[in-house]
Design a protein around this nucleic acid. Structure first.
Lengths: 113, 113
DNA sequence: ATCATGCTTAGCCATGTCGCTAACTATCGC
DNA sequence: GCGATAGTTAGCGACATGGCTAAGCATGAT
């Protein structure tokens, strides 16, 4: 069941940064050049490049170079593993909710911090 | 719309670590003491404590102390923002798939690296 | 009162992250 | 070829992360 999936770690880590998430939503509109992505963020090119590497290594985007222009685009199915993991967790978590009842009541009594 | 949601960053960052994910799946079975969580991971107590703080600050778990024993439990609804974000993204990404067609064909022609 | 247990705090170390600048390479338009 | 444009590489600094040990504190059992 892939307990310690490294791909999952890459994905979550890539998504943990607000700049990278905004790059993703920007790319969701339409593919863009590196400079196009740097503009809105207010970041320098090398900085954007690094974010793009992280996104690409996580498999969230693809890039291709035509002449001196590198175009970046999202890879829609890249989020599938995340969604799968989330579904698995929700299934387990909800299945065990009954076991939590006693604990929750304990918490409501105890946690006054 | 929450473009740069800090809570989302906390969540994704918390989930990016395999150890923390395994702690979560362990807690999905049943609430546990700190020592119970340290055992399987092979990590020292202070290390586990840090992971627990990260998880708690992200809102993924609750802890309560009874005597000298701290009990940890998952917060099932904590994953909701992640799920919401994923749903939003999928909606946008899929809606723009048509715009990607031209690019994808370009990629298949270009990317031989 | 004493001792073992369970957690907590403080602090160290190696490594990773995120921003930058400066300098380099590679293309495109003339 | 020359200069502007687009991207890349190298390397720096500040800070975060993930592991550890050692020592402290609080509670429960004897």
């Amino acid at each position: 069941m892939a307990k310690h999936d490294p791909a999952l770690s890459l994905l979550f880590h890539a998504l943990a940064d607000p700049t990278r998430r905004s790059i993703l939503t920007r790319l969701a509109e339409t593919p863009a050049r590196v400079t196009d992505l740097a503009g809105p963020t207010g970041l320098r090119l090398p900085t954007v490049m690094r974010h793009l590497s992280v996104l690409e290594e996580a498999g969230l985007i693809t890039t291709s170079k035509d002449g001196r222009i590198r175009t970046c685009a999202i890879v829609p199915e890249a989020l599938d593993p995340v969604r799968t993991w989330l579904d698995e967790q929700r299934a387990i978590w909800e299945a065990r909710l009954d076991r939590l009842d006693a604990f929750v009541m304990n918490v409501m009594k105890e946690s006054e911090e």
